[in-house]
Design a binder for these strands. Structure first.
Lengths: 110, 110
DNA sequence: TCTATTAATCGTAATATTGCAATAAACAAA
DNA sequence: TTTGTTTATTGCAATATTACGATTAATAGA
C-alpha cells in the first residue's frame, strides 16, 4: 500500500520515525553536515557540494524544511538556508532518549 | 527513479542514512521498544502487541535483521527475536556522533 | 500420520520516494 | 525593459515501501 498506519502507534513512536526518516537519505545527511560546516549557506553551494541536480537538492531541502530542521531566508535571488537549532535540539533529545534505552542484556533467550 | 545515488556520498553518510532509514517507520520503532521491554521475544507477541498483520510484521523484522539490529533464533515452531546489543551500540555511536556536532550558531546569516 | 501452530514467502495493490529535464518565478543589474 | 542568476515547481519515469491475503514450510503434539 505504501501508506504507513500512523494511527496505531504512539505519538512518540511517530515522532522518532519522522525524524529518523528525514535522516534516512545520505543527501539530507550531507546537506545537514554541510550546513553545519559553513556559516553562510545557500542552495547553490549545496548543488556544487553534493553531486545532485538542482531540483533534487531543492526537494531534499523542502523535506528538511517540512520537519523544521532547517529554515530559509530569502536574500535577493538567493535563499539562505540554515539549521534550526531549537528543532535540532528537540530531535537530539527524542532520538537520544530512544537510543539510550537501558541495555539490560536479554540473556534469557537468544 | 526511486534509486538513491549512494556512490556520491561518504561511507559515513550512507551508514547514518541506513540506520536512520530503518528507524524511519513507527512499526520498527515499536518493535525495537517492545524487544527492549520484554526479555523473551517472539514474533507472535509482536503481532498482538502492534496492530499489523503477521506478514507485515515479518517484513519489518526482516529489514531490522538485514541491518543487523536484531537476530532471530529458531525455537521449535517459534522464532526468538532479540536486539543485537553490539549493533545497537554501533548505531548509537554513529548517530550520536552525527547529532552531537558542535552547535556553533550560524549568526552570520538567518 | 494427522492436525494445529508459528513464521516466512509469494503475489499483488496502493502509495511514496528519488531523480532530473523543462519550466516558471523572483529578483538584481545593465 | 531586458538579461542573467538563483531557487521553486511541474511533470514524468523508475524504483521502493507499506500492507495484507493466500500459501508454504517447519515443527510440536495428539
Amino acid at each position: 500500500m505504501g501508506l504507513t498506519k500512523s494511527e496505531i502507534f504512539t505519538a512518540q513512536q511517530n515522532t522518532i520515525a519522522t525524524f529518523a526518516k528525514v535522516l534516512g537519505h545520505p543527501a539530507r545527511v550531507a546537506i545537514l553536515e554541510h550546513l553545519y560546516k559553513i556559516k553562510s549557506c545557500v542552495c547553490g553551494d549545496l548543488v556544487d557540494e553534493i553531486g545532485l541536480a538542482q531540483p533534487t537538492i531543492s526537494q531534499h531541502l523542502k523535506e528538511l524544511k517540512q520537519v523544521g530542521l532547517i529554515k530559509g531566508t530569502i536574500e535577493g535571488t538567493r535563499v539562505c538556508y540554515c539549521i534550526d537549532d531549537d528543532k535540532w535540539i528537540t530531535m537530539k533529545a527524542v532520538i537520544h532518549e530512544f537510543l539510550d534505552q537501558d541495555l539490560t542484556k536479554n540473556q534469557e533467550c537468544c
